[in-house]
Design a protein around this nucleic acid. Structure first.
Length: 229
DNA sequence: TTCCAGGCAATAC
DNA sequence: GTATTGCATGGA
């Protein structure tokens, strides 16, 4: 079932090429070696924080401002005044909170560089401002670690398809496990699948009634709560 | 004008 | 332990 949904979405939309990177002019379908530079890895991490409950077009404005001010760099982020940073990322909303989150992450990022290591999920979750979705996005898209990203769209679609029951209020990790236990452990597949879910949800699950004209519903939505295969 | 976006932490119950 | 609230901009 989980694999089948992926096949249908891929057939519908094709490769998505997440994460969008400014250095490659946005999305980069079929180039799964990216990011390959420290600056791009950092940009993905910052973008993952900025996009928390925020439209990507607003995040792009904030990222543009950061590049314009030569702040797309962990050391510079730590040096700049909180208020300057907050104003630069203002279009992304929640700018005071996010400025604080970005500073905390920049400090962590520099420590990673010094130790020449990649972050663990546990380390990321211990940072103020990094929750499960942001941690998984960073691991999957910046570091190519095969960990599945769950967002509100994912839950919305699974509920519409009756693969999960909204009343059961499954945890983030439980929903994540539904995907990971039914798919090969492949970061490219995980990157594309999450991106396809977002693409599909923007089209059919953004405004109510959710799932209107969703082509998955006639194929998958059979009301069987137990079958996640 | 209202609603929503690729959440998270703090607070209330 | 679970539910609610604050955080904020910009486009539809």
């Amino acid at each position: 079932m989980i694999q089948k949904i992926y096949n249908i979405l891929y057939e519908l939309y094709g490769p998505q090429g997440w994460w969008p990177l400014s250095s490659s002019g946005g999305y980069h379908p079929n180039n799964y070696l990216l990011p390959d530079k420290k600056k791009d890895i950092f940009e993905i991490c910052i973008g993952a924080i900025l996009t928390q409950n925020t439209n990507w077009s607003n995040v792009e404005k904030a990222l543009f401002n950061l590049r314009k001010r030569k702040l797309m760099n962990a050391k510079k982020i730590l040096e700049v005044d909180d208020e300057i940073l907050a104003m630069a990322i203002r279009p992304a909303g929640y700018f005071n909170q996010k400025a604080k989150k970005i500073k905390i992450f920049a400090n962590f990022f520099i420590q990673l560089q010094n130790k020449n290591k990649i972050p663990t999920r546990k380390e990321l979750l211990s940072l103020w401002g990094i929750g499960p979705e942001t941690a998984d996005s960073i691991l999957l898209y910046a570091y190519k670690i095969p960990t599945f990203v769950i967002d509100s769209y994912t839950k919305r679609i699974l509920e519409a398809l009756h693969i999960i029951n909204g009343d059961l209020k499954l945890s983030y990790d439980e929903i994540k496990e539904i995907f990971e236990s039914n798919l090969p452990n492949d970061y490219i597949l995980f990157q594309e699948y999450h991106a396809l879910i977002v693409q599909h949800a923007k089209k059919h699950y953004s405004k109510k009634p959710f799932g209107k004209n969703c082509p998955l519903l006639p194929v998958i939505g059979n009301g069987d709560l137990s079958n996640t295969n």
